[in-house]
Design a protein around this nucleic acid. Structure first.
Lengths: 344, 344
DNA sequence: ATGAAAGCGCTAACAG
DNA sequence: CTGTTAGCGCTTTCAT
C-alpha cells in the first residue's frame, strides 16, 4: 500500500497523446495552444484523446521553452500573518486577469536567511514566473537581469524596484500622539528590522511626535526588535526591567507581533496591560485583535496594498509607465491595550 | 525606462558559469550538487565564478530532469481566509525539514472552477512538486497517477486520498446545542458546499442536535449556501423573509463567511443581531472576530490542521505508513452574535 | 495541414 | 577527475 511499492506512476505526456491520436507532438502542441493551421477533424480527434487521457500540459516543461508563463509569483520569507494578509489582497485582485498565482516561501531554516528573495527570484524568474511581488525583501533588488518586481515594505537604500508601502511616518506619529494624548510621558520604542525602510520611518515618526509634544527622546527608551517575536523578547525585557520612575509607561512596538510579545513579557514581569503599561503596535494583523487585551495598533491597509502591488506589476508587465512608488494611508485602531498612565 | 526598452535581460545559466570557469557544464552541475568526483581546485574555481556571476540554478530546469524537487505544493482555489490560516500552520511546520513551499491558486475565473485541483496537480506534479496538500478539493482525488496528496476538508465520496479535517459533527452539535441552550426553538441551517464532506457532516450534526433536543427538523429552515458570500446571500434572504412566527430566531451557518453574510442580510431586512436573530458560524477565521457584532462560531484548529497535513505528507513521502485520516477537535467560541430569543 | 528537428537549462549515465 | 552524450516535456521554426 505504500507509495513506493510500484514504480512511481508516470504522468501522461504530450507524447502519449500524440501516439494515441496518431499525430505528431507538434500537432498536439498546436491544438493545445490554439495555433493556426490544424484541420478541424484532427483538432477534434486530438481534443478527444486529451480528454480521455486526462492530459494536462506540464507547467514546468512549457515554461522552460516559452518566454512568458502568465503566472506571477509572490515571494515571501515565510507565511506569517503579515504576508498572509497581503496574499488575500493580491488573490482578490487577480480575479479575471488571466494570471495564476504562485506563492513561494523561500527562507528555509536559519541559514541563507538574508538574500532569500534574490535566490527565489533567480530560481523562479525567467522561467516559472513573469513577474514577482516580494514582501519585505532582505536586500535591495536592483539587478538589471531580474524580471519585473514590485516590493511591498521595501528595503532601505537608494532607489530600487517599484514599491508599495503604508505611510509609516504618519502612522507612527498617530501611535505616539495617541499615547501622548492619554498622558504618557515616558514612551518606549521597540524598533523593527533595521534593514527595512519601514522600521526607520516608524522610528522617525516616533521621534517627530515626541519632539512635537515637547518630550525628549531618550536613547534608554529605544531598542531594536527585529519584527519577530524571538527577536523582540530580550529588548522588551530590558525596557520593562528599568527601575520604577525610569521604566516607560507605554511602549510603541514597531509591529503587532512584537507588541504582542511585549504584552507577554509585561505579564511575566507582573505588569498589567493597560493599567501599568500601555502597548501599541503597527500593522493590524488579525492576531492583534486576538491578543489579551486586544491590541491598539496602527492599521496598514494590507489587502489594498497587495492589490495595488498586483496592479503595478501587471502594468509593468504590459509595458505601461506607472507610478514607481505607491504609499497608502495608515490609521489608528483603538482597542484595549492603551490607557492613561496610572497616577501613583 | 520601460522594461521593454532593452532586449529582456538574459538570466545567468549554467553554461555561462561553465564557459567562464573553463570547465564543462557537467562539472559545474556536479559542483552545485556536491557530487562525488571533483577536484578541490576545480570546485573552488567554479564556486568562485558562481559567486561572481550570482548564478542560481533554475528550479524549473532541474525539476524537469530530476525525480525529486524537495518542494511541496499547497493547492488552493484562491487565497481566502480559510486557506490563508491553513497556510500559516503549514509554513510554521516546515521549519527545518529542508522542503520549500509553493502555494498555488488554481481556480482562475469562473470557468474551470470545478476540477481546479486536478489541473494543478497535473501541471505541477511529477515535475515541480514532490507532494501536495490540497485544500477543499472540488472532486475526489483518486487517480493512481498522481503524486502523494493529503486533502484538508476533503470531498465526499468513497475513500480517496489521506485527509485531515475537524470533527464537524461534534462541532455542529456544539453550535446547535448552544443555540438550544439559549432557548431557541426555530433554528435555521444555511448549508455549505454540497460536494464537501464537511458540509454533509455539519448538517448531520445540526439534525442530531435538534433531535436530541426534541425539536423537529423542518425542511423549510434548511437551505444550501455553498460556503461563499455570493452563494449565501439568496438562501439567507429566503430564510429571513419567512413570515413572523415561521422565521427562524437563530441561524447556524455552515461557515463563518456565510454567517457574516447572514448578518449583513439581516441588517438589510431590519433585523438586529443578536436581539432579533442569533447567528453562529463555523471555522473561526480571523474575520469572524471583526464582524459586527463579533461572530459566535465553532473553531477549527486551522493552524494545527495545516501542520498535521504537512506531517502526514512528509511521512508519506518518506514511505512511512501513517494514519490515513486525522480528525482534530472543534470547539465553541462564544462572542456576541448569539443571545436568547426575544420573548415577544 | 502536418511533422522532423532543434533546443530551453539542467542532470545523469557513461566514457575517457 | 572530467567531458560527452542523452534526454526531461514542451514549443517553435522550417520543411514537406
Amino acid at each position: 500500500m505504500s507509495t513506493l511499492d510500484q514504480p512511481r506512476p508516470r504522468r501522461v505526456t504530450i507524447t502519449d497523446v500524440a501516439r494515441e491520436a496518431g499525430v505528431s507532438v507538434a500537432t498536439v502542441s498546436k491544438v493545445i495552444n490554439e495555433r493556426y493551421g490544424v484541420s478541424e477533424s484532427t483538432s477534434e480527434k486530438v481534443l478527444a484523446v486529451i480528454d480521455q487521457l486526462g492530459y494536462q500540459s506540464s507547467l514546468i516543461a512549457s515554461s522552460l521553452r516559452r518566454k512568458s508563463t502568465r503566472v506571477i509569483g509572490v515571494l515571501v520569507a515565510e507565511f506569517e500573518p503579515y504576508s498572509a494578509e497581503l496574499l488575500k489582497g493580491i488573490s482578490a485582485g487577480l480575479d479575471s486577469t488571466g494570471y495564476e498565482l504562485l506563492a513561494h516561501a523561500g527562507s528555509t531554516g536559519v541559514h541563507n536567511h538574508s538574500g532569500w528573495e534574490r535566490r527565489s527570484l533567480s530560481r523562479l524568474g525567467h522561467t516559472l514566473i513573469d513577474g514577482a511581488i516580494v514582501v519585505t525583501p532582505s536586500m535591495i533588488i536592483t539587478d538589471e537581469t531580474t524580471i519585473p518586481v514590485v516590493a511591498i515594505d521595501p528595503h532601505t537604500g537608494p532607489d530600487g524596484p517599484m514599491t508599495v508601502d503604508a505611510d509609516n511616518v504618519t502612522g507612527a506619529r498617530l501611535a505616539v500622539d495617541h499615547l501622548v494624548g492619554l498622558g504618557h510621558q515616558r514612551i518606549g520604542f521597540l524598533g523593527g528590522r533595521p534593514d527595512l525602510r519601514s522600521a526607520a520611518l516608524r522610528e522617525q515618526g516616533y521621534r517627530e511626535a515626541l519632539h512635537a509634544a515637547g518630550l525628549s527622546v531618550s536613547p534608554d527608551l529605544i531598542r531594536v526588535g527585529g519584527y519577530r517575536p524571538e527577536l523582540a523578547e530580550a529588548p522588551a525585557r530590558e525596557l520593562l526591567s528599568l527601575p520604577d520612575g525610569l521604566r516607560p509607561t507605554a511602549i510603541f512596538a514597531a509591529n503587532d507581533i512584537s507588541a504582542i510579545k511585549v504584552i507577554e513579557v509585561a505579564g511575566s514581569l507582573g505588569l498589567r496591560v493597560p493599567e501599568d503599561l500601555s502597548v501599541i503596535g503597527f500593522d493590524n494583523v488579525p492576531e492583534a485583535r486576538d491578543a489579551t487585551p486586544p491590541l491598539t495598533t496602527v492599521a496598514q491597509p494590507l489587502h489594498e496594498m497587495g492589490r495595488a502591488a498586483l496592479g503595478l506589476l501587471l502594468e509593468l508587465l504590459e509595458g505601461k509607465e506607472t507610478e514607481r512608488h505607491l504609499r497608502l494611508p495608515a490609521e489608528l485602531v483603538e482597542r484595549s491595550s492603551t490607557a492613561a498612565p496610572s497616577s501613583d
